[in-house]
Amino acid sequence: MAITRFCFVRHGETPWNAERRIQGHTDVGLDDEGLHQAELAGRWLAAAPSPPTVLYSSDLLRARQTAERLAAALGLPLQLAPELRERRYGVFEGLTYDEAKRRFPDDYRAFEHREPDYAFPQGGESLRTLFARVTGRIEAMRVAHPGATVAVVTHGGVLDIINRFVRANPLQLPRDFHIPNTGLNWVVAAADGWRIESWAETRHLDHGALDELDLA
Score class of each variant (00 low, 15 high):
residue 148 A to S: 11
residue 199 W to T: 04
residue 155 H to D: 02
residue 190 A to Q: 15
residue 145 H to F: 09
residue 183 G to S: 10
residue 167 R to E: 12
residue 148 A to T: 01
residue 196 I to E: 01
residue 141 M to K: 02
residue 179 I to K: 01
residue 212 E to Y: 13
residue 168 A to H: 12
residue 180 P to E: 03
residue 149 T to P: 00
residue 169 N to Q: 14
residue 153 V to P: 07
residue 164 R to W: 01
residue 199 W to C: 05
residue 183 G to D: 08
residue 157 G to T: 02
residue 154 T to N: 06
residue 167 R to A: 11
residue 199 W to Q: 03
residue 157 G to F: 07
residue 167 R to D: 09
residue 162 I to F: 00
residue 174 P to G: 12
residue 200 A to F: 02
residue 151 A to Q: 03
residue 181 N to Q: 04
residue 196 I to F: 10
residue 150 V to G: 01
residue 167 R to C: 09
residue 182 T to G: 09
residue 199 W to F: 06
residue 184 L to E: 00
residue 204 H to R: 11
residue 148 A to F: 01
residue 160 D to K: 02
residue 143 V to K: 10
residue 179 I to M: 11
residue 187 V to P: 04
residue 198 S to K: 12
residue 194 W to M: 08
residue 178 H to I: 04
residue 189 A to N: 04
residue 154 T to V: 06
residue 206 D to V: 13
residue 173 L to P: 03
residue 138 I to S: 00
residue 177 F to Q: 07
residue 205 L to N: 07
residue 202 T to S: 06
residue 189 A to Y: 00
residue 159 L to G: 00
residue 208 G to V: 09
residue 200 A to Q: 05
residue 203 R to V: 10
residue 188 V to Y: 10
residue 156 G to C: 06
residue 195 R to S: 14
residue 190 A to L: 08
residue 169 N to T: 14
residue 138 I to Q: 06
residue 186 W to H: 12
residue 165 F to N: 06
residue 192 D to F: 04
residue 159 L to I: 01
residue 197 E to F: 06
residue 198 S to A: 15
residue 181 N to T: 09
residue 174 P to N: 11
residue 143 V to M: 09
residue 171 L to C: 10
residue 144 A to Q: 13
residue 187 V to E: 06
residue 139 E to Y: 08
residue 144 A to P: 05
residue 139 E to D: 13
residue 203 R to D: 14
residue 180 P to D: 03
residue 209 A to D: 05
residue 163 N to W: 14
residue 200 A to S: 15
residue 200 A to K: 03
residue 174 P to E: 12
residue 190 A to T: 11
residue 160 D to M: 06
residue 152 V to F: 07
residue 137 R to W: 03
residue 183 G to V: 00
residue 193 G to C: 09
residue 155 H to K: 04
residue 185 N to V: 08
residue 206 D to N: 15
residue 203 R to E: 11
residue 210 L to S: 15
residue 189 A to F: 08
residue 158 V to D: 02
residue 149 T to L: 00
residue 171 L to S: 09
residue 177 F to S: 05
residue 186 W to E: 11
residue 202 T to H: 07
residue 139 E to S: 10
residue 143 V to A: 12
residue 187 V to N: 01
residue 185 N to M: 00
residue 140 A to G: 02
residue 168 A to G: 11
residue 211 D to I: 12
residue 138 I to C: 08
residue 182 T to R: 13
residue 152 V to L: 08
residue 187 V to Q: 05
residue 143 V to Y: 08
residue 164 R to F: 05
residue 206 D to W: 14
residue 198 S to G: 15
residue 142 R to S: 08
residue 159 L to S: 00
residue 204 H to I: 14
residue 186 W to K: 02
residue 195 R to E: 13
residue 163 N to E: 14
residue 186 W to C: 07
residue 145 H to L: 07
residue 197 E to W: 03
residue 180 P to L: 04
residue 206 D to C: 14
